[in-house]
């Protein structure tokens, strides 16, 4: 009898608010565990931005001078300038990687297991997205810790104020990846995504050079950069790292996140979406 009561109370509300919370925690926890277990992925994710910081930035230090622009109060080293851009890059890679892996090849089965959960699909996809963001934020902090020893020393408060910015930019880039993974069939491998999404987004942004420098060489490129959502992610992160809020960038990021996510949920909708039309993850085989 007591066992019966205990059991009922344990399962009561399993699909209510508490259930939603447990589900979210479970999805995030699994993503974190997976990331830690795959040591290769962890190291690759860390080495990539460090190579840019240690080698690329060192090489260009003398070539590119960055004058005083907001939010910096003095002339800054090139390393200091590109650090927020590299933080954005970590999140860009992470967003694309986790969203793509979710749909293509290895993770097909995982996606199926996720989608047979009774919780609504928009919630499951959002939770999955958030889990990816949590992992990317962990990567960012490790990167920033190493960068500290490379004379990239933002004010301490910046490490705190960057957090909400990272959540927002991570959600934006993750939902973009989610959308791409569901819509574009041709980009089935990561090389395609590198060439056609990650590189153009990264280079056509304010990650490596301030936009006014871009304007000097090509007004068209400058406009493209100003149209690139990634630019706003980087600027959001840049200001936040120095304890400031770039309201315009934040607004653009919020709008983009909502837009990408709505489209992605639509694409994953079982009746309207594209899964049904193309035969579903794993195909019919």
């Amino acid at each position: 009898m007591t066992a019966q009561i205990a059991k009922t109370s344990a399962t009561a509300g399993r699909y209510g608010i508490v259930g939603y919370w447990r589900c979210l925690v479970g999805i995030v926890w699994r993503e974190a565990l997976r990331f830690l277990q795959q040591r290769g992925r962890f190291i690759a994710a860390l080495v990539r931005p460090l190579v840019w910081l240690f080698i690329f930035a060192a090489g260009f230090r003398s070539v590119l001078g960055v004058s005083i622009i907001e939010p910096y109060e003095t002339y800054v080293l090139y390393e200091v300038y590109i650090t927020p851009g590299l933080v954005g890059m970590i999140q860009l890679f992470n967003g694309m990687q986790s969203s793509l892996a979710m749909v293509y090849d290895r993770e097909m089965g995982t996606m199926r297991t996720l989608l047979v959960s009774p919780f609504p699909r928009w919630f499951l996809l959002s939770a999955k997205l958030l889990a990816g963001v949590v992992v990317s934020i962990a990567q960012v902090y490790v990167f920033l810790a190493i960068a500290w020893f490379w004379e990239v020393e933002p004010p301490l408060i910046g490490y705190l104020t960057i957090l909400p910015a990272l959540i927002l930019s991570g959600l934006m880039l993750g939902s973009l990846g989610l959308l791409l993974s569901s819509v574009i069939r041709q980009l089935e491998n990561f090389a395609g995504i590198m060439n056609f999404v990650i590189f153009p987004m990264f280079f056509m942004s304010s990650a490596l050079y301030p936009l006014w420098r871009m304007k000097e060489s090509s007004p068209l490129l400058h406009d493209l950069c100003a149209f690139n959502p990634f630019t706003y992610a980087v600027e959001l992160i840049r200001f936040a790292l120095y304890g400031q809020l770039n309201g315009y960038a934040a607004l653009v990021a919020v709008a983009c996140t909502i837009g990408f996510m709505a489209l992605a949920v639509f694409a994953y909708n079982p009746s309207k979406g594209l899964i049904a039309r193309r035969g579903g993850p794993g195909g019919a085989a």
Binding site: A10, Y15, Y20, R22, I27, R30, R34, F119
Partner: peptide, 20 residues
């Protein structure tokens, strides 16, 4: 999930069903 333990796989599934 081959990289996780049997129990971790089980508790993940339980979370998807909102179980404590």
């Amino acid at each position: 999930d081959p990289d996780l333990s049997v129990m971790q796989n089980m508790t993940y599934h339980a979370a998807l069903h909102g179980l404590p």
